[in-house]
């Protein structure tokens, strides 16, 4: 049933987010550390296991895939509630501080990606 997939997804999300909050608390940080990441790993692990047991049926998978497909619309809605005005009002200092960091980060990606690509023509 579709709800089984949705419920499993919700359970994984909740467990992951709670774990992220707990890790943040232990580290003394006021932020969720890795919650979504833990939830993703848990979902991967559980669906894999249930599929092998033959207990994750197509309708159940549909409950997960619907939300996966809703991801982009949700991101569009997220964009529509960003504080764009606040970013613009920050003036040139805020703009430069953000933009230079973004440019430098983008520039690093090809090097970092090459650094850590194992097995394929290991140059280093």
């Amino acid at each position: 049933m579709t709800i089984y997939g949705v419920a499993l997804l919700a359970l994984c999300s909740l467990v992951g987010l709670v774990a992220g909050e707990a890790l943040g608390f232990v580290l003394g940080v006021k932020a969720n550390v890795g919650g979504v990441g833990f939830a993703m790993l848990l979902l991967l692990f559980l669906t894999d296991w249930l599929k092998r047991e033959g207990r994750f049926t197509a309708p159940s998978a549909g409950g997960v895939m619907f939300w996966s497909a809703m991801y982009i619309p949700i991101v569009v809605a997220m964009a529509a509630q960003q504080n764009v005005l606040g970013a613009i009002k920050g003036g040139p200092l805020a703009f430069l501080a953000g933009a230079i960091g973004v440019g430098a980060s983008f520039a690093m990606i090809p090097f970092l990606a090459r650094l850590g690509r194992p097995k394929k023509k290991d140059g280093a």
């Binding site: 999300s13 992951g16 993703m40 790993l41 996966s68 619309p73 991101v75 809605a77 997220m78």
Partner: peptide
């Protein structure tokens, strides 16, 4: 829009995208 694009549904949908990713 605040609900649809808020943290709760955003995280929910992001976790859903992991379905089918490769371990």
């Amino acid at each position: 829009i605040g609900l649809l694009g808020g943290a709760m549904l955003r995280d929910f949908a992001i976790v859903a995208t992991a379905y089918g990713a490769s371990f």
